[in-house]
Design a protein around this nucleic acid. Structure first.
Lengths: 156, 156
DNA sequence: CTCATATATTTAACACGTTAACAAAATTGT
DNA sequence: ACAATTTTGTTAACGTGTTAAATATATGAG
């Protein structure tokens, strides 16, 4: 185990950022990927992406929703959402209408085919989440969610 | 505040996943985006992406590193890393050599131009991180990092 | 040595993230 | 009513995420 020389040894030490492994951005990324690793193969079997799942799931929860509201709830940027909506509509999972009262707005609604996907995916998704919750600890998940919410809320 | 009817009211309730706002994947995504929102404008001013910053920062920390090790440390998938390396090399921030002992391996090293970026960006990055730490609470950051590590480690 | 297998990296194809610019419709002020 | 402004959604351009397949080199069995 010989310690190699690195640029950091050449006197630039004070300039370097703190250790990569204890940084919030990467830790959040790793944690998220670890969680999604449990869901992604299942979603892939049903031929939908994580984002597509978020969109149809929100439509199933909330009924008719316009694009801005969807972007907000699903945490998807408008340009991505435009593409996702196009794809979901082409596949017949959702329908899209212009709002009669405000011609700029696009109203989204889940289609029967989309409800079928919800019915197929939901039980599996639930099961995966519950196993995760059990393994990590139910209360610890709650604590973690609270801490993450607070971190996300620091900007406001 | 009239409660709208949704597909959920039509008897499908048991099929629906739990509430979107208390889900780990989205909470992790929101938290991460909130954190990155503090860094991104600064990185953009220096004309580098978050991932490019991770790569050169690791080279500054660790010296010569091969691509697999980099993928591991920076948590970037191999195909993305290939593109990022190409871009960083074209811009003269890093250099790339074939390993003499193992012709498959690609060794990466930071270039003087890359060290200049490190010197420019590091202090700003540090300052942003420290303000974040202060506002969220130093110990709370440590607790959160531990909880995230544990979540990421559930897979092993 | 040589063939089969394993490993490191790249390429390809498609989806999403990000920023900026654009187009269309609504709102506001006069 | 109408011009300026604001809001909503789309398009464009580029970088990254994800999976599968391809390429090149290394390693191991016989």
């Amino acid at each position: 185990m010989s310690r190699e020389k690195t640029p950091a040894d050449l006197g630039h030490d004070a300039l370097l950022p703190h250790n990569t492994r204890r940084s919030l951005p990467i830790a959040l990324l790793r944690a998220r990927e670890a969680v999604m690793a449990h869901f992604r193969p299942m979603l892939a079997r049903h031929d939908i992406t994580e984002q597509q799942w978020r969109v149809i799931r929100i439509l199933a929860e909330a009924g008719r929703v316009d694009a801005s509201e969807m972007a907000d709830k699903a945490f998807i940027l408008a340009p991505s959402l435009t593409r996702i909506i196009r794809s979901l509509e082409e596949r017949g999972l959702i329908t899209k209408h212009k709002d009669a009262d405000d011609g700029r707005r696009v109203l989204l609604e889940i289609a029967p085919e989309g409800m079928r996907v919800i019915a197929d995916v939901s039980p599996e998704s639930r099961a995966i989440y519950e196993e995760l919750e059990t393994r990590y600890g139910r209360e610890r998940v709650e604590v973690l969610l609270d801490m993450l919410d607070e971190l996300a809320g620091l900007n406001d």
